[in-house]
């Protein structure tokens, strides 16, 4: 058994012994928190099954449940496009981040070179600049390069992130040098050492980064809204806003679209979460 899981078990046992009023209070708090988290999701699902007249009844079980909204959304050609666009953009961006963030993070963690610290601080400092400040320069740049209304235009600002570089650097720092030096003696070049040895050792971090980046891009709104104006280039969040026009907001349609768009994020989370848990188990292994 690994040290980490042993510690967890021990903590668990200790917790049970002290079960009592404190525990009850903790559970109550957790329950309230859980409720607060789940309620919006429940309302989303409920509303997506309602007819428009029922939307403002705050009942969780629709009086006249219907799948009409789903039929309409799924048969809407545009919705298919948006879904595809979001999926493509989020997937490509995720792959790009996993590769580049890890490559730069590794270099910053494991190579000694002049100005290494300066580069690192420079990368970190970009975290302080909010997206809202950047969209105008991005837009002007896209316009001049002719990237408006293209996948590249939507993706380019996020292909590498300072956060990802930082995260990967921290994880690569925990990889013992022996692992890399052994490979160096065996004759692997520096790229292969990174790819074949270092990358598999930080799989949990890669999985976490994949989840962050995919979800971040799947739900990204401001920049895709600005850079696209052709409806077939919209991403899902942008597309869903077309259900609310000035005179009326079609809540049931928005909720249905949102419900459908939650599915891929759940899949991504479930798939990569397995890696994270496996990774924690592996990390307790000496050597």
């Amino acid at each position: 058994m690994t040290a980490a899981s042993e510690a967890l078990l021990r903590a668990d046992a200790a917790g049970r012994r002290r079960a009592g009023l404190g525990a009850a209070l903790r559970w109550l708090l957790l329950f309230a928190g859980g409720l607060a988290m789940v309620a919006p999701l429940a309302y989303m699902l409920a509303t997506s099954l309602k007819y428009p007249f029922e939307v403002f009844n705050l009942n969780l079980v629709p009086e006249e449940p219907t799948l009409d909204n789903y039929r309409e959304v799924l048969l809407d050609r545009r919705f298919g496009w948006w879904f595809f666009n979001s999926f493509l953009v989020a997937s490509l961006t995720t792959v790009s981040n996993l590769f580049w963030d890890a490559l730069v993070g590794y270099t910053l963690a494991k190579f000694r070179f002049r100005f290494r610290q300066v580069v690192f601080v420079a990368v970190l400092s970009t975290l302080m600049i909010p997206t809202e400040m950047l969209v105008i320069p991005w837009y002007l740049m896209s316009q001049q390069f002719g990237w408006l209304n293209s996948y590249w235009g939507i993706m380019f600002p996020g292909l590498m992130t300072a956060f990802g570089v930082f995260l990967m650097r921290q994880f690569f720092q925990t990889v013992p040098d022996d692992f890399l030096e052994a490979a160096r003696i065996d004759g692997l070049n520096e790229f292969l050492i990174w790819w074949r040895v270092a990358m598999p050792l930080v799989r949990p971090a890669l999985a976490a980064l994949a989840i962050f980046v995919f979800l971040g891009n799947w739900t990204a709104f401001i920049w895709p809204l600005i850079v696209t104006n052709d409806q077939t280039m919209y991403t899902l969040p942008v597309g869903l806003t077309t259900f609310s026009v000035e005179q009326s907001v079609q809540w049931e349609m928005i909720m249905t679209g949102a419900a459908v768009s939650v599915l891929p994020t759940l899949v991504v989370f479930l798939v990569f979460q397995r890696f994270i848990i496996r990774g924690v188990v592996m990390a307790g292994l000496k050597g």
Binding site: P176, D178, F179, A182, D186, G187, L201, K286, G287
Partner: peptide, 17 residues
Amino acid sequence: KDRDIAMVFQNYAIYPH
């Protein structure tokens, strides 16, 4: 790799994956 040597490390440096 060109030195015709091999090295064994204290923490084994064998790959868990």
